[in-house]
Amino acid sequence: MTIGQLKEIQKEIIRKNKKCNIITSIVLCFVIVLTIFIKSKYGFINNAFVLALIIETISIILISFIIKMCVNGKDIAKFNEGFKKLFVNDALKSTFDDLEYNMDEGFSKTIIDQYSMLDTGDSFSSNDYISGKYKGINFEQSDLFIEEKRVTTDSDGDTEVEWIPIFTGRYMIFDFNKIFKANVQVVSKNFYSHLFPWGKKYSTVKMEDAEFNKLFKVYTSMEHDAFYLLTPHFIDKIKTLYKQLNANIMLGFLDNRLHIAIDNGKDSFEYNVFKPINEKEIKDNIIKDIKLITDFVDEFNLDNDLFKKEN
């Protein structure tokens, strides 16, 4: 696919969308006028009438949205696929070795559950799976969306179900350059605590850095390993990255791999289909998304194999 073809698909989506909007407006006006006419002829304008009008309006907008999705759904999927093939895939290929990219699939719920680093909530989905090598370090990553179901019952006994997003961001796993026995988890304090089952299982450790202790909680099954992995240099890097990202983060050390979860509220490697295509802006955004992976390898010196024992 070329940029020209992508722009054509986008034009078509916008054209169909405009058409839908015009039809919806006409239908809405017609229905409102008709309702007023019927009501003024046969009855009084009262609260029930206003309520009916609101319900009618919402229904029409909803129906219009569903029609829009039916009409444009295929084109939007085609646009997203084209966008990812054209821009994302190329950018990933030029940065990583042994690349595997699957835009539709991500980490499975079972895999994330097995790691026990993050609670997978009541609704779990994942996409943009990337695996590869950067500076010789194996990694894999995916976007994750986790929601929690909250049921509330009022005094009348009516129950209301709400789906609350508790994690929207990236989950990455890197090969780690130190060998350790115990599991260690570092969690920023503002993270939704229900997400971390380890908090109940392991003890907390205080590091010697007061600022770090204010920002993070450290859980571990062996205190020595927490100090072995979290060197003063590593602690400084975590603090810097945390401030740069301005999002809640979790770092987990498990089976000689480093797990990182970033709750930045972003769906990475995506593009708003209604936004004019600006190649430079798109490339800059993709580089930003890729940099999130490379920064961890670079800043944490994961390619430093001084601590790895020879095979």
Partner: peptide, 14 residues
């Protein structure tokens, strides 16, 4: 030399 660096890290941690 690699071993001593790792041992040093463990000593620092302890």
């Amino acid at each position: 030399q690699k071993a001593i660096i790792d041992v040093e890290e463990h000593l620092q941690a302890s």
